[in-house]
Amino acid sequence: MQADQSALQCNACGGLCYFSPERSALECLSCGECYDLGQPDDYLARDEFAHRPDVAEPEDNITPAQRTHQCQNCGGEVLFTGPALSAHCPYCNGPVVLVSGDAGYRTMALIPFRVDAAFAKRLAQKWAASRVACPAGLADVVAQGDVAGLYAPFWTFDSDEVVQYWANFVKPGGKAIRISSTKGQMKIAFDDMLMPASPHVTPLIRDGILHDFDPRDLKPYRAGYLAGFAAERHHQTVAEGIAANSADKDLLIRNHIKYKIDRTGVHGIRYLTDTSGIHYRRILLPVWILHYSYGGHAYKIAVSGIDGRTFGERPFARRRLALYSAAISACVIALGMAIGAAAAF
């Protein structure tokens, strides 16, 4: 880590450098000199690693880190590299304190930030302003929020599943509702399935803003890409990562089964799956998180550091919800009364 810090010094003036999303290069804070971090063998970052659950394999090197900060609020541990040393946790905006000896697994690759803080903030404001039934002036409140750049830890998993399933469905026709059962077998191939590698990275961040994750954009892990941003280290073993994301995988398999059955009212799904061909990567993905509070509640909006896609949490205006509810109620009541009046004759 000490070597990493010295690699962030400008060759021309000795000043400290940070990674500039605008220039896609390491930029000196003092003299503005830029350094390209690209290497001819960057394509190697796309490589995946095989995992066999039945064989006890040693995990990657566990590397100790300096300058790790722990949030006093949510417990998240983040690493600050280079000049950006925030006093707040990027996940929850809570205060952070310096802790020693944080150990994590080696990050294999990352996608560098392409969207800068100012643009991310504008996107968050635009997102908030476009919300249906949001309180008046929400965009102005969001404009006062703090935005923090974070490299969030993710897994990519590949796997081949042979699924044997049993399910019930509703059979239409006749006066009574009939329930039928079915069973079958199917193959599912999960390719580069993105999974959060930390309890602080919610599935909503993954599914809300990282739509266009492309493994071809991955770069090898270098401290220079992290300069100026916070990053969370990988703390999960592969088995822990698979276990932590099993609920999401279960939901996706059940949805595949529903589509495969393609009948009305599919329910009571049971299945057995034989998983093989597991491949993984430990990666970091760039996320801007904007924290704001409204009506005494804390909210956050996440902006993808790759392409600026935005999603987040927001409050609702009760009065506007009531207006929508009244309008729909009036339409349904008018239609219902018309049908009822017609049925009476």
Binding site: I333, G336, M337, I339, A343, A344
Partner: peptide, 13 residues
Amino acid sequence: VMWCAVFIGDWWA
């Protein structure tokens, strides 16, 4: 709501 409204419409007519 629809069920209640149909009943009221029927009753009204």
